[in-house]
Amino acid sequence: MNKITNNKAWFLVLPVFCIVAISAIIPLMTVVNYSVQDIFGPDSRFFVGTEWFQQVLDDSRLHEALLRQIGYTFSVLLIEIPLGIGVALTLPRKGWGVSACMVLLALPLLIPWNVVGTIWQIFGRADIGLGGYILNMLGVSYNYTQSSVDAWLTVLVMDVWHWTSLVVLLCYAGLRSIPDAYYQAAKIDGASRWAVFRFIQLPKMQSVLVIGVLLRFMDSFMIYTEPFVLTGGGPGNATTFLSQYLTRMAVGQFDLGPAAAFSLIYFLIILLVCWVFYTVVMNAGQREEQ
């Protein structure tokens, strides 16, 4: 095949390039700039090379926050994805129930994040909160401001409450796209309920599930507002996740150099995980086709 080269084509890419540069590349470069320098003022700056990166990588409190973050994100995915699929499967397929369920499900998604934090902060309080008070009345000693387990669970339940709807809606959309004939054929073939799920519903939901997992991974890995409002990262450091640690470092202690280095590592982790996940899943799909 003869390829036609025309360098004018580059001009067509230019607008997009400019937008991406302004929206992403230039801000990112300022972070890179901070991460390799020690800056005291506009006129006094020193190039420090990888010093900040090494300091950050050796920071044991950061390791803890990272582990906590990984544990949290995996718990979120492990609960929300199966739960979302489960709820989507039980939703009605027609009638007034459909719109009623859609509205109910969409409600948590519409609430601003810091409001979600506030709702749960009040809801969970042992003295005046409905949830906390009832739990204590039932004899469960529950106090998220003192017990780190309670705090951790509260943050987790809050996220499940807030975001499972997203997975449900995505899965529901995937399920709705399956033609009736598939279910009819499965009935004729004598397939069990499980086989219908395993061989019809799950494969047809695959692409929306990939999106769901990616979104939930990125969001929960970057979670900041809700735990900040609910527990402030405490008690101790029990619910201090990466974002919050980063904010403390950058805004609280004004360690801009390490904070910038940390930001880059953080960004790369998310990028890497998403890329690996996406490539693996999509390759698996393609290999099947061959």
């Binding site: 033609p179 004939a181 054929a185 019809i200």
Partner: peptide, 13 residues
Amino acid sequence: IAQVFQFPVIYDT
């Protein structure tokens, strides 16, 4: 009973 539908129904995976 066996039934074949208008549009192909196959189990993708």
